Amino acid sequence: MSLLILGIESSCDETGVALVRGRGGDAVPTLLAHALHSQIAMHQDYGGVVPELASRDHIRRVLPLTEAVLAEAGQRLADVDVVAYTRGPGLAGALLVGAGVACALGAALDRPVLGVHHLEGHLLSPFLSSDPPEFPFVALLVSGGHTQLMRVDGVGRYEILGETIDDAAGEAFDKSAKLLGLGYPGGPALSRLAEQGDAKAFKLPRPLLHSGDLDFSFAGLKTAVLTQAKKLGDELAARKADLAASTQAAIVEVLVRKTLAAIDQTGMRRVVVAGGVGANRLLREQLDAACAARRVRVHYPELHLCTDNGAMIAMAAAMRLQSGQQQANRNYAFDVKPRWPLDAIAS
Score class of each variant (00 low, 15 high):
residue 5 I to R: 03
residue 10 S to D: 02
residue 11 S to H: 09
residue 12 C to M: 10
residue 16 G to C: 12
residue 20 V to I: 15
residue 25 G to I: 03
residue 27 A to F: 00
residue 48 G to C: 11
residue 53 L to Y: 02
residue 61 R to Y: 01
residue 65 L to A: 07
residue 66 T to G: 12
residue 78 A to W: 08
residue 80 V to G: 10
residue 87 R to M: 02
residue 92 A to M: 10
residue 92 A to I: 10
residue 109 L to W: 09
residue 110 D to Y: 02
residue 110 D to W: 05
residue 111 R to Q: 03
residue 113 V to F: 10
residue 117 H to S: 01
residue 120 E to P: 01
residue 120 E to K: 09
residue 125 S to E: 00
residue 126 P to A: 14
residue 132 P to W: 13
residue 133 P to T: 06
residue 135 F to W: 13
residue 141 L to K: 10
residue 150 M to C: 13
residue 150 M to Y: 04
residue 154 G to V: 00
residue 156 G to E: 00
residue 159 E to M: 03
residue 165 I to G: 07
residue 166 D to L: 11
residue 167 D to L: 09
residue 178 K to H: 12
residue 180 L to N: 06
residue 185 P to D: 05
residue 185 P to M: 09
residue 194 A to C: 10
residue 211 S to W: 12
residue 211 S to T: 06
residue 224 A to M: 08
residue 227 T to I: 02
residue 231 K to H: 13
residue 232 L to P: 03
residue 233 G to A: 05
residue 234 D to R: 15
residue 235 E to W: 05
residue 242 D to R: 08
residue 242 D to M: 12
residue 243 L to K: 06
residue 248 Q to H: 04
residue 259 T to Q: 12
residue 265 Q to H: 11
residue 266 T to I: 04
residue 281 R to M: 04
residue 286 Q to W: 14
residue 294 R to F: 09
residue 305 L to K: 09
residue 310 G to K: 10
residue 315 M to G: 08
residue 316 A to Q: 09
residue 320 R to P: 01
residue 322 Q to V: 00
residue 327 Q to A: 14
residue 329 N to G: 14
residue 330 R to Q: 14
residue 331 N to Q: 15
residue 336 V to I: 10
residue 344 A to W: 06
